[in-house]
Amino acid sequence: MSWLTRSLSSFSGRKLLAAVTGLVLVVFLIIHLLGNLQIFSDSDAFNHYAKALHDGPLILLGDIGLAITFPLHMAMVIWLAIDNARARGPAGYKKHGTKQTRGFASVLASKTTLYGGLVLIAFTIIHVWHFRLHHEEMQAFAAGGNRGYVIQELANPGWGLLYIVGSLVVGWHIFHGIQASFRSFGVNHPRYTPLIVRTGMGLATVLALGFAAIPVWILLG
């Protein structure tokens, strides 16, 4: 094995790639949410934004970026998860417990990040098919363009609920994921680390509630 493959296939190397791609995806989520929130405006802001986005070069950049980071993130994490699952050995524990005194949510989130991620794979596939691949149809939608199309789709309780669940799962996934990414870089500081942890959890909560607010608002009419 060459130096690069040896380094990147080490646990810390895989973690590094997963962390970098994960944080890129968080940045994407922030931009995505800022765009989405324009739906709350009655004006044509959302439609203008959607049109400008799809006419400009940004969408291509976004697509290429996501096409690289998303699969890379999944591949690294799944590769790690396979090794982690094997490490326990042939027999598991009969009884599970912890001695942690940290917050219940932090502990649970840290142990279920992977499962959240697996749900997100399915959610992302559905979401991309549902909106991204129906872009032409959305823009040409007679009753209110993009905005009207989104409102019509999310007013369906099945879709609405799916998007609420998806929003909460993505928040749950990065609730642990953001701080864990910084840990993967080896960041450790008596002052800044607690700040990173709190900022990460706060950002995860804001993103989850922000994304979920849209289907909730539409479902409530």
Binding site: R86, T98, Q100
Partner: peptide, 18 residues
């Protein structure tokens, strides 16, 4: 450590507590 079949760190911090 990796070659011996131990897992990677998921930062659950159970180790510190134990």
């Amino acid at each position: 450590m990796q070659a011996l079949g131990f897992g990677a760190c998921s930062w659950t911090q159970d180790c510190e507590a134990a």
